[in-house]
Design a protein around this nucleic acid. Sequence first.
DNA 1: TTGAGTCTGTCCACTTGTGCACACAAGGGA
DNA 2: TCCCTTGTGTGCACAAGTGGACAGACTCAA
Lengths: 254, 254
Amino acid sequence: MDARIGKVTEVESRPANNLLRRLSQADYALLAPHVTVEDSAAGQLLYNPGDDVQVVHFPCGPSLATFLVPNEDGRDVETILVGREGAVGGIVSEGFLPAYTRICVKFGGPFARIHVAKLEAAKLRSASMRNIFARYADCMLAQIFQSTACNAIHSIEQRTAKWILAAMERTGDESSVPLTHEQLATLLGVGRSYASRVLQSFKAERILDTRRGSILVRSRDGLRQRACLCNDAVKMHFEEVLRGVYPTEEREAG
Amino acid sequence: MDARIGKVTEVESRPANNLLRRLSQADYALLAPHVTVEDSAAGQLLYNPGDDVQVVHFPCGPSLATFLVPNEDGRDVETILVGREGAVGGIVSEGFLPAYTRICVKFGGPFARIHVAKLEAAKLRSASMRNIFARYADCMLAQIFQSTACNAIHSIEQRTAKWILAAMERTGDESSVPLTHEQLATLLGVGRSYASRVLQSFKAERILDTRRGSILVRSRDGLRQRACLCNDAVKMHFEEVLRGVYPTEEREAG
DNA sequence: TTGAGTCTGTCCACTTGTGCACACAAGGGA
DNA sequence: TCCCTTGTGTGCACAAGTGGACAGACTCAA
């Protein structure tokens, strides 16, 4: 993205996760010995409800995780997406508590991982590390609050457009989202046939095209017009809360 | 509730808030010099979006706070209720960040208050204090996650019943909830006429009665049957996460 | 190349919830 | 006491979303 000519900086050698990349060099040095990076495939479960939370997962590059709330019907409802802008697992709980939600890899790819205990130890040693993780936790909270309101009052059409935009922003893939209608419907908590119809109406307006198992985006602006403003509200909070605390200039995916 | 015969214990002299009451005596001693208790009336705004978060408010007794997410229409949508089981303001952000939501006193009453900075200082000095607040933050998070899912898939009837039960549990008032139909509709993010109709259907089944400006509960079990299970799921998480970390036996309001 | 399994587009009857309208009831202040 | 404001109950036309069904299309594996 903003690769500079000349020697690779220390920051650029870190995993492609904004949270990790924007730690100061001293702070990252506290974590580095404990960080591992490994791929996870789409569908893999990082946590199930009740699991002990022991590892923080940082999505890197195009990978994407999602928080699912199990339902009495056995249908999981998706709540928020987390990509390279953040991390999942113990961000708020600080670890060693039973997970409340299921956390699932939505789009596969690399994840940086670190034991919660190591992260907490580093946070105790560094005020700036505490600060940045508290700020991110606050942003994550804002994201969930916004989702709660969004689910209460916005139409399925708006939420569908919002979801596709959010996924694109996080993965960096500007043209397609690998998702069946069934999956889309399930994660929005709506009926499949209605989700299909919404996609059809977008297709009729040349906003997107459908392929078996994926959605091709033709007009990002068209999607923006159809989406509610929830993404933007959250993104503004990210920018406001994290502005200035990161040493580099890389943009946030809200 | 469980007042014991004999001398008043140190815990019972604290503000009637579960989070404060279940700190160890040593931990509470760190906070005590900075705690003030003052009444707030229903409708008072504790925070508006963008406000610097500097004070933690602990609802005591029957008082109740609520997180509202502003909407493009100017209508606020209610997300979660917080009563004597918890606190609002800086629980996750740890203070000095712009508030994302509006926080409003729903039912008036006493609130214990402490500066975030004082609380954070105490947390740095006491691991058990950190632990208990991280645990509560995790519970609050669970509550919001559940609300997000609930708004996605449960009917207005279920959510209405759930809301009334949640309010009753937190205030301790087993028989009535001071709320107009309009207020109920707004906080659920639904139309007023439909909210009225739901209340009428409950009335027809002798689950409740309506008075001008308040709802009288006649059958708590009837409400439970009509409500979704979201309250219970969250309550279980509260019990699991906070079990054992409190010295006293007082029950949680989930 | 042919299935088998999955995904997609569409139909239909039905339920849930909206938004507006209007008559009436309750209750506090002058 | 009466008025005026606010809250309540209900009717209606309509929009949004459900859930089941089914035919056809795509694709992978044998």
